[in-house]
């Protein structure tokens, strides 16, 4: 009889909790991240340690993330914006300020990543991984020397080139080559570099942002401009794939974790940020995605092979000399139009 009663009470409680769950805050941590960027093992380990369940949704561009966040679809607790998106979101008051006392592992980050111009003193965001955009070439086919963008778009390489399918990136290479700061995306500057870009794009065989390494490793292209993580994977596969930091100027991107204003789970989100800053956890991320890890304590755990990969950790390169993107705003549409029409010519 008593047993029966407790069961009934338990059922009633469960029902009440379910009902309450409809209106009140959810107990799972909702992570909205780039596709192929957060290892499942890291998420599993976090749940195992803290008991906090994590649900993951993916996006493939900052703009897609912004669109979904602003549409108010899912109440995300943690997002992964790149530097220019962080800048725009701070300006629009879309991010919550972090309680740094809850994220003591911030101390593991390299000093140059503690005070980035888009978010001084990590008030709103914490770097996840950083990376560069550079030139990769097949040294068995391309004799070299290759030092920058201009060596990619030569007549000899026409029809054998892969580049990122990213209008903003493409425009920034043109600007850098013309000696214009890469964030000065004005109408006049776009007009200045249009003939150059027209010549370049006519020689490109493949435009691919998701997996540009495929066209290289399949032998369909000999040279290209890709993300450093892709270059690192190619180099690890075969050292014939050489990596070059362009002399015209290096663009660095920094992807971060941040908490949107709409999140009801700030504590859990901060716990997750602190968790991934632990050296052994951050190493797990580097093992799977060989970009530049801003976590110094994690880098101490990496193998010599990982650290000697020239695309992941370019020897002798000072990351503070790299250029970051700033938010383009409405000009994004013009940049896209220019590149799309040049491709369709």
């Amino acid at each position: 009889m008593t047993k029966h009663k407790t069961k009934l009470i338990a059922a009633a409680c469960a029902g009440a909790m379910l009902l309450a769950g409809c209106g009140k805050k959810d107990e799972t941590l909702k992570l909205f991240s780039w596709s192929e960027y957060v290892p499942q093992a890291v998420i599993d380990k976090f749940t195992e340690e803290t008991g906090i369940k994590v649900s993951v949704e993916n996006y493939s561009s900052n703009e897609e993330m912004l669109a979904k966040l602003l549409a108010g679809g899912g109440a995300y607790d943690l997002i992964q914006p790149s530097e220019y998106a962080v800048q725009a979101m701070i300006k629009e008051d879309l991010l919550q300020e972090l309680d740094q006392a809850k994220i003591p592992n911030l101390k593991n980050l390299a000093p140059e990543f503690r005070n980035m111009p888009f978010d001084p003193n990590n008030k709103f965001s914490v770097p996840w991984l950083a990376g560069f955009v550079g030139v990769v070439y097949n040294a068995e086919v391309v004799p070299g020397p290759v030092v920058g963008y201009k060596d990619v778009f030569t007549d000899e390489h026409a029809g054998r080139i892969v580049i990122l399918d990213d209008a903003r990136e493409t425009v920034s290479w043109g600007l850098a080559t013309a000696g214009i700061p890469i964030n000065n995306v004005t109408d006049e500057n776009l007009a200045t570099i249009t003939p150059l870009l027209k010549d370049w794009l006519g020689k490109v065989k493949v435009f691919d942002s998701d997996s540009p390494k495929t066209a290289m490793s399949n032998g369909d292209t000999d040279i290209g401009i890709v993300w450093s993580g892709e270059g690192a994977l190619l180099f690890a596969e075969n050292p014939k794939f050489q990596w070059v930091m362009p002399v015209e100027g290096v663009h660095m991107f920094v992807d971060n974790l941040a908490i949107p204003k709409t999140s009801q789970n700030k504590d859990k989100a901060e716990a997750f940020i602190n968790f991934i800053l632990r050296p052994e956890i951050s190493k797990m991320i580097s093992d799977e995605f060989p970009y530049y890890n801003p976590n110094l304590a994690a880098r101490a755990l990496l193998s010599p092979e990982q650290l000697n990969n020239p695309a992941s950790y370019p020897p002798g390169f000072d990351v503070t000399s790299a250029q970051l993107f700033t938010d383009l705003g409405e000009q994004a549409s013009k940049v896209d139009e220019l590149i799309t029409t040049l491709k369709a010519q």
Binding site: E63, A67, D166, R168, V204, K205, V206, F207, D336, E337
Partner: peptide
């Protein structure tokens, strides 16, 4: 068309998809 064509000859589907993502121009 994007995977097989290497994105070098954008089709109208690719252009529309771009407006909703990178170009930030849903109305267009």
């Amino acid at each position: 068309t994007n995977l097989m064509g290497g994105g070098a000859n954008p089709t109208i589907g690719e252009v529309i998809q771009n407006q909703f993502t990178k170009a930030r121009n849903q109305p267009f």
